[in-house]
Simulated assay, not measured.
Amino acid sequence: MRQLTIVTGGSRGIGAAICARLAADGHDVVVGYASDATAAEAVATTVRETGRRSLAVRVDTSDEGDVDRLFDAAAELGTVTGLVNNAGVSGPNGPLAEADADGMRRALEVNVLGYLLCARRAVRDMTRSGGGAVVNVSSAAATLGSPGQYVHYAAAKAAVDTMTVGLSKEVAADGIRVNCVAPGVIWTDFHADPQRPGKMAATIPMGRAGQPEEIAGAVSWLLSGDASFATGTIMRVAGGM
């Protein structure tokens, strides 16, 4: 079967690297994005340059109707075989005592509800089509806690880890694998301080922050046939953190 994978948050950073890697590994790719249509279309063009098919689709993953429109648009290219839940926001940065409720609420809506809604639709479709694979992008923050920075974000990513384990058991008999990649500090524009990855290097056993492509490789493997016996796995790619 031809591989067709939806990547949410695919217009930049880790998501863009995942799209490029999946295209190189033979996937058609639907690039889900929140706001930057130009960046998303550039990623879709990169996919097409490999000879694969691609669409860029605007989506608020925390909105049920938007998620359905994303998957309906993807179905125009064929049967969806993979989902990469990657769209995320950090929310307020700083101590929890200073965090605003609206910012935390939005972070939880995108980072938890968004993953659940996308996975729910993927499972519905994949059950009918004979199976598939879901990869959730979590964070090493889920176990480190991110004190003083974004405890609410770490809590959301811990929820993603638990979702991965529970859903993997729920849908294994339907031929659907559900796994997770938990990145550490990665060089992307996700950080409030663009230089944070460099500043964090001394706290990482490998002595450096990671690159988006290093996360993309792990995601691609979990979607591949080589990972056919892997489900419920939380793969930490964090330089030893």
Rank of each mutant, 00 (worst) to 15 (best):
A39V: 14
L55C: 07
D66A: 15
G232V: 00
A74K: 03
V171H: 00
A201Y: 01
T162L: 07
A44D: 07
T81K: 09
V178N: 01
G240T: 04
V219R: 04
V57E: 02
L144D: 12
A44F: 05
T81P: 09
A133W: 00
P183C: 08
M206V: 15
R2Q: 14
R236S: 13
G175S: 13
S35E: 08
V43D: 06
A87T: 07
I6R: 02
V181S: 00
A16S: 14
F190R: 03
G148L: 08
H27Y: 11
A159H: 04
A107M: 15
R124N: 06
G51I: 13
A16F: 10
V43P: 05
E214S: 12
A119H: 00
L116P: 00
S138P: 06
N85Q: 09
F190M: 15
A140K: 02
L55H: 08
R177F: 01
P205R: 06
P92K: 04
T127F: 08
S62T: 09
G132K: 03
R208C: 11
A17R: 04
Q3R: 15
R48H: 09
G88R: 01
D226G: 15
L144Y: 05
P147H: 10
A101H: 13
V171Y: 00
T188D: 09
S11W: 09
